[in-house]
């Protein structure tokens, strides 16, 4: 019975194009339920549960090596790329579908759950083609559609004004702050329904960071955002909810203000008050 239900729900992901509209009407919150991940037999995530609510920002904080990136990777199936890593139990529900299910097409998951990495990377092509990289793979776009997607995504990531006159320049000529916004535009051009960001500002200067934060605040009006950050001030500034991971365990989570002002766990208190880390 349960297997039958699972196949039924995964079907919709497989045939997404035909049933897309009714699914899109469901709230886009993402639910992580008791997920356990092992990498070469070592437990990296231990029964982590959390929710990325629609139109809210969830910040994932915690010491290095606590499994923050692994959680992000599990959420859009980029975990499959790491040799030896697998989800041993638990599931991730998004629009009533279990993303961890092996029969779900991982490429479709990655397209719908967009991810921005820590290190911005310029593909060896023009700025415009960088933005269209995923789009061109997923569907045939006409010249006009392509131009529209490029303009829209670059405007969303706040880079349009800086590059609109040199869209055909190689992307490698951008500064690192611009490059990270290009990477965000590249992810947004794919039309994601959730945005995951893994320390997107760790390589950037405060001004670029400010621009990206501003952009995240705009983006959250249309989709859920999950951001991993080591910058506690940033987490406090932008997020609505906070998840504190420690050694693969979700030690504490809740509204950001509550986590920062009156955490229940001593370790969380030490961390957010700056006593450790």
């Amino acid at each position: 019975m349960e297997i039958a239900m699972q196949t039924a729900t995964t079907m919709s992901l497989v045939q997404m194009n035909t049933v897309e509209e009714p699914i899109r009407n469901l709230p886009a919150s993402m639910q992580v339920k008791d997920i356990c991940v092992t990498v070469n037999g070592r437990e990296v995530l231990k029964k982590v549960s959390t929710v990325a609510q629609d139109r809210k920002i969830l910040a994932v904080i915690g010491p290095s090596g606590s499994g923050k990136s692994t959680l992000m990777r599990a959420m859009n199936r980029t975990l499959d790329m790491i040799p030896g890593a697998r989800v041993t139990s638990g599931n991730i529900l998004f629009r009533q579908e279990n993303l961890c299910c092996p029969s779900v097409d991982q490429r479709l998951v990655r397209k719908r759950i967009g991810m921005v990495q820590q290190k911005p990377v310029a593909f060896p092509m023009s700025i415009k083609e960088n933005v269209l990289f995923g789009v061109r793979f997923h569907k045939n776009v006409s010249r006009k559609e392509a131009d529209e997607v490029v303009e829209k995504s670059l405007k969303q990531s706040g880079l349009w004004d800086e590059v609109k006159d040199r869209l055909h320049d190689p992307a490698s000529r951008l500064s690192i702050g611009q490059l990270q916004r290009l990477c965000i535009a590249r992810t947004l051009a794919n039309g994601p329904e959730v945005l995951l960001m893994d320390e997107p500002c760790s390589a950037l200067d405060p001004i670029s960071t400010g621009k990206i934060e501003e952009m995240i605040m705009t983006l959250k009006q249309s989709l859920p955002v999950v951001i991993v950050t080591h910058n506690l001030a940033q987490a406090r500034r932008i997020s609505d909810f906070c998840l504190f991971l420690s050694d693969g365990v979700a030690l504490e989570q809740g509204a950001t203000e509550q986590i920062f002002s009156s955490p229940k766990e001593q370790q969380v208190y030490d961390f957010v008050s700056g006593k450790v880390g």
Partner: peptide, 27 residues
């Protein structure tokens, strides 16, 4: 070619073939 190229490309949901053609071979 640095692994970050593979990560960034595959995270957009493309196939390895597409990644090789458009990113890795030019690099």
């Amino acid at each position: 070619v640095d692994d970050s190229y593979r990560e960034a490309a595959l995270a957009l949901g493309v196939t390895t073939t597409y990644l090789v053609q458009r990113v890795l071979l030019p690099r």
